[in-house]
Structures are given as structure tokens and as C-alpha cells.
Design a protein around this nucleic acid. Structure first.
Lengths: 190, 190
DNA sequence: AATTATACTTATTAGTAAGTAAGTATTACT
DNA sequence: AGTAATACTTACTTACTAATAAGTATAATT
């Protein structure tokens, strides 16, 4: 088997993911990736013929990641609050990398995305919103959490706090994000 | 006086504002503006030599707009809830235009913005966050609103709900935004 | 009336973008 | 050993980007 090319393909994807969250779809180029990997632009086109294919690949990895996380969270022997904290921690890390979350990135660039990508983005967003909603519903059913809204609505509130929270914190500082997290956890703590 | 050029300059700014919110800084070009106004690219460079200058102009109009709104809100003989509703209405309108708010737009593109723009963006964000915080603080002092967080923190929570709310609603539909607004108004209603 | 400033257009440049075609070296398969 | 697939590089094309220089018509100023 040709190991190197598989490594290159995943390496391209990893860098593309970072560039998407740091700069957005329209602000990075194949040259940025090629430079970091010491390969030529055309090598990227070999693995991902068009930028559209590359972005589809990026979104796919996030769909898989969150599907995996969703299954893990259902089985995990931890409180619902701890589950949400694990999820929130994923967002907190982004700020140190001067990144925003992938959903915020594609949402901002949405009007400029190819149709095939838009459909996948919708799938990713539904997945994450429903995962958080499910965690919230379970937590309330178990008496671990308290909130008066519908789980889906509360999920929307929390997800928008987090998504825009990292966008804001990249500009105003991480403290604003920490304040948001503290407040929203206080809201649902019993 | 040469009236026409002043109209052209403001017309450029108006279109740039729309393009910023619809496509983002890196996805629109001088050609997009020139086409809509039936002028040449170079005419835009005459009024705004570099794209940086154009973006500075765009941010300036929003700073002025929100400074104006802030003053209006202080004097207005309406309830704090109505003041917040007026502010929220500005966001609601964006979704119909397939736009996001200017703060979300520049926040997403932040790493790609010139330094001079970044400083102005920070000023705009502080202005809006503090305006909402002030309205919340006044409303609570007058007994019109209820919330347990610090006004600044509650402002961050509401602003992130709105900013990411319009980003999300552009993809998933306006109903999600309406749900968010209903829920956050319920939270602070007495 | 002559000059100057304004608001452009025409024409061009240098740089960068995505994408492709053709060639090459290495590995896998038969 | 010969063939074919894999994973690239080299070289190129097309298209678009911001930006600039030089020219032009009109209006304002002196």
C-alpha cells in the first residue's frame, strides 16, 4: 500500500480545517496548504480536484466527529452538566488558536458556498443542535438540569452563545467567553 | 457643488455594506460594486483608494448609526423591553435580506482584516455591547426587566444569541431566530 | 476668460486564484 | 519482467483581484 499519499490526504484535510476556522473559505488558498506541507498546489488538486471537494471533506470530518461524540455522550457515565462542559471545552480551546468554530465559519460564508456544501452544512448543524438538545432533555428528565424552554430552543440559545462567543472573544479577549460560559451554566444548574 | 460624486460615494458605501453582510470582506470585489452602480472599478478607487479605506468607511457608518441609536434610546419615552425589541428588529430584518449582522461578518473575517479596521471593529463592538448593557441596567433599575447576571454579561448573552441567531437562521430558516428571540425576551420579562 | 479642482473613464500592471494537462518516479499487481 | 495504478511535479492557462497612471469632461473658483 502507498502509505504516504494517505498521510498527505489527511494532512491536507487537517490544515484545511484549521484554515477554514482561522480565515474562512474565501480567504485561504491551495497555496497556503501546499506551503505548509512542502508540496505543490497540483498535489492538492490530485486528492481534492476542486475546492468544493476539499470543503466537503472538511465538513464530513466534523459530521463524523460529532456523530462519534454524540454516541459517546449517550453512553458516558457522567452527569449531563459534565457532558455539556465537555462540549463547551471544545469551543474554549478554539480561542487560544485564534479560531472560530466550523459552524460559525461556514455560516458566515454561507452565501458563497457551493450547493453541495450547503446541504452538508445543514446536516452538520442539525446534528449538533439535536445532540445538545438531547443532552439537555436527558439532563432535565434525570433531574440534573433545570430550564423552562423547549430543549431544542435551549439548545439554540446555548449554541448561539458559544458560536458567537468564540467569534467575539477572538476580538475582545477570552474573558468575555468565560463570562458567557459561566452564565449559561448557572442558568441550567440545579 | 458637485452633487453627483457625493451620491456616488454614499452609494458605494451602501452597496459595500450590503456586500459585507451578504458575502463578507474577502468574497466581494470592487467589480461587484462597479457593476451595480454602472461605473468603473477605478471610480471606486477614486473615493476609496484601497479596500481597507472602504471597509473603514463601512464600519464608521455603523459606529455613527449605533451612537445615534444609543442617544435615541436614552431619550425615548418607551419601556426598556420596547427598546430592546427595536434593537432586535434590526436583526430580524437581516434574515429576509439573506444577510448577517456587520459584527458577525467582521468577527468571522477578523484574522484577515487590516490592523486599522480591527481597531475600529473593537470600538463598534464595545459600543453595541455597552448600549445593550445600559438598556438592560436601566430596565432592571426601573423594575421593567428581570435578570440575575451582570448587565454586561447579560448583554453578551443576548448579543451572541442575536449575532449567531441570524447566521444560523440564514441556513435553517427564520423560525429558529424567532424562537431565540421569544425565549430571550421571556427570560428578561417581568 | 483662464485656471483649478472634482469626478470620473480608459488602459494597464502585477499578483494571485482555481484548475488542468502532461510528464515522472515509485510501488503494486500479474 | 512487464504493466498498470498511485502520488506526485512541472508547466501552463484562464480568470479575477486590487491598485495605479494618464487622460477627459464638467463644474467651481479666481
Amino acid at each position: 500500500m502507498l502509505e504516504k499519499s494517505i498521510d498527505t490526504k489527511t494532512a491536507i484535510l487537517t490544515i484545511a480545517k484549521d484554515l477554514m476556522r482561522q480565515l474562512g473559505y474565501n480567504a485561504f488558498s491551495y497555496a497556503d496548504i501546499a506551503q505548509q506541507l512542502n508540496i505543490k498546489n497540483a498535489a492538492i488538486h490530485y486528492h481534492y480536484p476542486a475546492k468544493e471537494d476539499l470543503l466537503l471533506g472538511v465538513i464530513d470530518t466534523y459530521i463524523e466527529e460529532y456523530q462519534h461524540l454524540g454516541k459517546q455522550l449517550i453512553a458516558a457515565p457522567i452527569s449531563s452538566l459534565q457532558k455539556l462542559s465537555l462540549f463547551i471545552e471544545k469551543y474554549s480551546v478554539l480561542i487560544d488558536q485564534k479560531s472560530i468554530c466550523i459552524i460559525g465559519s461556514v455560516a458566515s460564508d454561507y452565501n458563497t458556498l457551493p450547493k453541495s456544501v450547503r446541504e452538508k452544512v445543514l446536516k452538520l448543524i442539525d446534528l449538533v443542535i439535536n445532540m445538545v438538545a438531547q443532552t439537555l432533555a436527558d439532563g432535565r428528565a434525570k433531574g440534573e438540569l433545570t430550564f423552562s424552554e423547549e430543549p431544542k430552543t435551549k439548545s439554540l440559545l446555548i449554541m448561539t452563545n458559544l458560536a458567537a462567543g468564540v467569534q467575539l472573544a477572538r476580538i475582545t479577549g477570552k474573558n468575555d467567553f468565560n463570562e458567557i460560559v459561566k452564565a449559561l451554566l448557572d442558568q441550567i444548574k440545579k
